[in-house]
Amino acid sequence: METGTSVSNNNQSIRNDSYEAIKNGSWFNQFRNGCNPWMARYVYGLIFLIANLLAWAARDYARGALRKVTRFKNCKGGENCLGTDGVLRVSLGCFLFYFVMFLSTLGTSKTHSSRDRWHSGWWFVKLIMWPALTIIPFLLPSSIIHLYGEIAHFGAGVFLLIQLISVISFIQWLNECYQSQKDAERCRVYVMLLSTTSYTVCIVGVILMYIWYAPDSSCLLNIFFITWTLFLIQLMTSIALHPKVNAGYLTPALMGLYVVFICWCAIRSEPVGESCNRKAAASNRTDWLTIISFVVALLAMVIATFSTGIDSQCFQFKKDENDQEEEAEDDVPYGYGFFHFVFATGAMYFAMLLIGWNTHHPMKKWTIDVGWTSTWVRVVNEWLAVCVYSKS
């Protein structure tokens, strides 16, 4: 009996050592060693990227094919409706795939368990399940798709909130790392350099937005967006330097970069043709710069979803150091359920980007996240970011 137990423990130890070697190995080594959770996350990211490309193709290039399908002939919005319907159907298929994975992997805590093997392997089954779940929405009536489109607004908002918390958590973690270093004096130079650079970029960004998007005094809305962003940066700095907080300059500087970027995205989302949006008017024609911008935006969204999905620890309750030290070697490297949940909400998010958060909004080819609804979603997201940062 003892011999059997010893053999079992040895096998478990060998498996743990093998997983540790894969974890600490190179990106290529993780793929070469077959099914493991580190390799699996890249495969799921690739599936998500392909779904994004399918949704874009359905919007920009599949309207002719969709028009021939009887189920789409009653589309009241014409070609725009066909493009929106195609995006939502691909998005629904992607959502169903990741939601099934979420339900089947939720609560997985140990490697080498059946749910761990399901998450990290069984690719032949998944390569059948994913296309099947992508095709099923194209067989559903438009009423169900429109209902999903309304629900997707909420799901996309959940995704933005998760992403927001993840970014703030990373910024605070980075600040704590610098403050907890033994050689704090040496790190202080790097902190000040990074903070100064971040504030400089913020100021330059604000000035450029005034030049590009508020060329005259009639652009009151853009002036308000930019000026309010400048005020929010000052507010976050004041909060961070308050004696009761004493967080230093790094976190408000990095958060300043984040809110300036969101403000820029919000104004960039204003519809083409607005007199205050000269940059958008200049890019009204489809050229290589427009195509490259679209591809970069698409890849950035996929990368953001991927990085947020593996960052499940920032949503766990804080543990003391003793609890962290007691974590077993066979614990899963990241929360599988959370990972798939982020991708499921990300499927709703990319649908909203491709249709401009409006199921009745026409979208030009090679555009993403354009429209007044998109603008206000970004603005509210910026304000929410400051609120979450202030409360954290």
Rank of each mutant, 00 (worst) to 15 (best):
K365W: 08
T345S: 07
G371P: 08
F339E: 08
W372M: 14
G346P: 12
V380P: 01
F339L: 11
G346V: 10
G356V: 08
T345P: 01
F339C: 10
V370K: 13
Y349L: 06
T373D: 02
L354S: 04
K365M: 11
F350I: 04
L353D: 14
F341M: 08
D369S: 14
L353A: 02
Y349N: 13
G346D: 04
V377K: 03
N381L: 12
V370P: 01
L353W: 10
D369E: 12
T367E: 07
T345H: 03
A344V: 00
N358W: 09
T359N: 12
P362M: 09
F338S: 10
P362H: 09
G371W: 09
M348K: 03
G356Q: 07
V370I: 15
W366Y: 14
P362N: 11
V379G: 00
T345V: 15
H360Y: 11
V342G: 00
M352G: 04
A344P: 13
N381R: 02
P362W: 05
M352P: 01
V379L: 06
M363R: 03
G356M: 08
L354R: 13
V380W: 12
T345R: 05
G356W: 05
M363S: 07
I368G: 00
H361S: 09
T367A: 01
G371E: 03
R378S: 08
T359W: 13
W366M: 05
F341S: 04
V370D: 01
N358S: 13
H361V: 00
H361F: 14
V380N: 04
T373M: 05
V370C: 06
T359F: 15
V379F: 12
P362V: 01
K364M: 12
K364H: 06
F350Y: 14
G346A: 04
V379T: 11
W366Q: 04
V370L: 12
H360T: 06
I355D: 09
W366V: 00
W366T: 03
S374K: 07
G337M: 10
W372P: 00
S374P: 03
